[in-house]
Structures are given as C-alpha cells and as structure tokens.
Simulated scan of single mutants.
Amino acid sequence: MPKSLSLRAGLGSVLFWSVISAAFIGPGTVTTCAMAGSRFGVSLLWTLMFSTLGTVLLQEAAARVTIASGLSLGELLTQIYGPRIRWLMVLLFGTVTLGCAAYQAGNILGAVSGLGLLTGLSTPVLTALTGLVCITLLWQGSTRFIANMLGLVVFGMGIAFAYVATSASPDPAELIRSLVTPTLPPDSTVLVIGLIGTTIVPYNLFLGSGIGQGQSLAEMRWGIGLAVLIGGLISMAILLSGTLVSGEFSFQTVAQTLENRLGRWAGSLFSFGLFAAGFTSALTAPLAAAVTGRSLLGWREGSWAYRATWLSVMIVGLTFGMLEVKPVPVIVLAQATNGLLLPLVAVFLLVAVTNKAILPVAYRNRPWQTVAMLFVVVVTAFLGLRNLWLAVF
C-alpha cells in the first residue's frame, strides 16, 4: 500500500466502495450462484473468478477517468463525441435505466422473499415496508451515507454465507481446478452469462464513475480492489452453499434444504442473506439509474429529473412485488439481459480511458490494461451472442 495512504483512509475507502459490492450482490447473485451450484456443482466457479477480476479492472478504469478529468464517464463521452450524438447518450441512458428497472424487480422480490421466510408476513405488506424505507433513504440524498451503510450490511451478509459455505466441504483440488479451468457444461450458457452479468454490472460502471470524485488514485484502487474481491468471495460462498441443494430450485427449497442438512440456523442465515442482498441492491439500482442520467445528460443531483428517475425504477420494483410475481424467472432474465448490455458499455469505457486528448499520460491505460479490457469485451460478447443464437435457433 502506498505510503500516502493511511490505514484509516484505506479502510474508509473499502467501506465506501462496498457500494459496488452491494450493487452486484443482489438477489440475482444469490439466485444465479445458488442455482449454478445446485445444477453444476463447482464447475462454474471459473466464471466468478473471471467476472470478479473483470469487475476490478473495469471499475478501476471508470473511477480513474473521473479522478483524472474531473468528469464522470458519461460527461467524458459527451465531451469526446459532442452534441451530435446526444441521441446515443439518451439511448444509452434508456438502456441502462431499463437494466436497472429489471434488476430492481428482482431486488424487491428477493428482499421480500427473504423477509417472508424470516417473518411469515404477507408479500404486499413487506413490499410496502421495504419500498418506504428505500424511498426515505434515497430522498435524503447522501450517497456517502448510503454507501457506508450498505458496506456494513454486505460484510454481515458475507459472514452469513461464508458460514453456510463451510459446511459444503468441497475437495480443495477440485475447487482450485474449477477456479482456473473454463468449462461449459451442457445447458449452462444462460447461467454463465447470468453469473457474469450479475457481477460485472453495466450500470455499476456509471455509478462508480459518478461517485469517485474527490478520492486519490491510491485510495480508489485500494478501496475498489478489496471491496470487489470481498464481493467475489461472497458470490463464491453462495455458489458453494448451492451445492448442498437438490431438486426444483426456489428460495423456499434452498432454505428448507439447508435447514434439513445443517439445522435451523442455516435456513435463517440464508433468509437473512437473501433479504440483505435484495435490500442493498434495491437502494443501489435506482441510485445508479439517476447517477447515469446525471452523468450522460448533465442533470444536477437532487433535480426533479434525477429524483424522477430513481423513483420510476423504484416503482417498477414495487409493482412486481405487489403483483407477487414469481421471483426466480424474473431475476435470471434480468442477469442475462445485463450480461448482453455489458460489452457495449465496456467498449464506451475503453474509448474514454484511452483518449489522449483528455486524459494525462499518467492516467491512460497501460498496454496490458487495454488488452485485458478487450479480452473482457470479447468473452462477454461471445457468450451473449452464443446465448442469443441458442435462443433463436
């Protein structure tokens, strides 16, 4: 760690950047990771290794753009291309917001499902309470307060899932092999692109760029690296927990299976983790949509357009919750949709972070970073297009 970065500043940065972990560890992560473990054992762990490293790479680049230029990713793209492509900025904002709304539906459904398993209360009541708390916190408007609060909840959730995962007792050699050896078992493509889409979340790149102002490069790199690594380990713990589950997949099945095999504590910990994942992401998805609009379209934080955006995303999630839609299909579809959007957003980020006219030399990509980002784009585009091909033909 650089000498200029104190221990207190480093820990504060990790807590602040845990908002990124809170954003990608939602019910989508719980669902896709647990389902991957249930259906394919540990064979898809390599996907989480790839997507965790990819998240660190892309989030660092997005935050570096802001620190170097004083502009968010969207503002920088607008400056590069000018007003002549404002239609593209509007289209990109609409696409990202649609992805946030899809995520939000799963977030609310997941949080309410976790609360329902814990309390037994009705879905409409729990949906209304969850929505009221989220709207109150978002309306007060402090992104740093929300980030720090979410960081604490994420760490608590991680401890819960890690405790359950230790009971899976995987073979160490098989575990290491699965982390570094890519495999695509039959009928696993949707889950693979879902695992990537739920970890390297496209809207997180705008969220990270939008909140990164005011930090030093050392603070940002330390905070993002450790916070995302912790998030990746939590995702892997959820997948290992899923290997204990067999039969038809549902949240009730997972909780009941864990209770039967490990005791009532395991089912309760899973239910708490599901609620925590949904609640934290139910705050970050609307916030990310509003921050993306501020970044791409030049809104002020707290303006009517800014608040209308996050409120609209919140209403979509609450509507799905009130209608008591089955959560698992909605959540998996949202992850796959965002996985398809990821290559497009990553290409925009790559263009911004290699721009010689705006970024000083010290802040531009090094050759290995450009190659690594291109690799992430190619892999995600290949998996997304392969998934579309299989769906159509």
Rank of each mutant, 00 (worst) to 15 (best):
R86S: 14
A173T: 13
A237T: 11
S69G: 04
L77M: 14
S169D: 14
M1T: 01
F206L: 13
F24S: 05
G120H: 01
S18V: 06
P202R: 03
L269K: 08
V313G: 09
L58D: 04
T280F: 02
T319E: 04
L340T: 08
V96C: 11
F320N: 06
F50Y: 12
G12R: 00
L244E: 13
R177M: 09
G321A: 10
A62Q: 07
R386I: 01
A160R: 06
L92A: 15
L342D: 02
C100G: 03
G278W: 01
G225I: 00
E324L: 05
I196A: 11
V254L: 05
N148R: 10
N365G: 02
V192K: 09
M157Q: 10
Y163L: 15
N260D: 13
I331H: 04
T243V: 06
G156A: 11
P182S: 07
T136Q: 12
P202H: 03
A23E: 10
S13V: 13
F161M: 15
W368P: 01
L262H: 05
V313C: 08
V376W: 05
A147M: 08
T189R: 14
L340E: 07
M35C: 03
G298M: 11
Y81G: 13
M35P: 02
Q213T: 09
T181F: 01
A162S: 15
V313K: 06
F24K: 03
Y203G: 05
M314H: 07
I193M: 08
S122Q: 13
